Simulated assay, not measured.
Amino acid sequence: MTEFLEKTEQEYEGEHDRPLGTYVRIIGVYGTVVAAAAVVAKLTGRRPPERISLLDVGLMAASTNKLARLLAKDPVTSPIRAPFTRFEGVSGPSELKEEPRNTLGELVSCPFCIAQWVATGYAIGLVFAPRATRLAGAALTAVAASDWLQLAHTKMVQST
Rank of each mutant, 00 (worst) to 15 (best):
D74Y: 10
R18M: 03
A145D: 03
S109E: 06
P111T: 01
E9F: 03
T160D: 13
S63T: 07
E9G: 01
P130F: 13
P83L: 11
M60N: 04
P48R: 08
T2C: 02
G125S: 03
F84L: 08
A38M: 09
A136N: 05
I27W: 09
T8P: 00
A37H: 02
A72M: 11
S63W: 06
P75S: 06
A41S: 08
E50S: 12
G92F: 01
A36W: 01
T64E: 13
T85C: 15
S53I: 06
T103F: 05
T32G: 15
Y23V: 02
E98A: 14
A38K: 08
A145M: 07
E9H: 05
P83W: 10
V76D: 09
K73T: 01
D147A: 09
P83C: 14
A132F: 08
N102Y: 06
R134S: 06
F87P: 04
N102E: 05
G92K: 03
H16T: 07
K73D: 08
T77S: 13
C110V: 00
V34Q: 09
L54M: 10
R51G: 08
A144F: 12
S53G: 15
I26H: 13
V157T: 15
R81G: 06
C110E: 12
K155R: 15
G105T: 07
L20H: 00
A35P: 02
L5I: 14
V143K: 07
L149P: 00
A139E: 03
E15V: 06
A62H: 04
E15N: 12
L149F: 15
A61K: 04
N102S: 07
R101A: 05
L104Q: 01
W117D: 01
L20E: 02
H153R: 13
N65K: 11
L59G: 15
L20R: 02
I124T: 11
E13A: 12
D74Q: 04
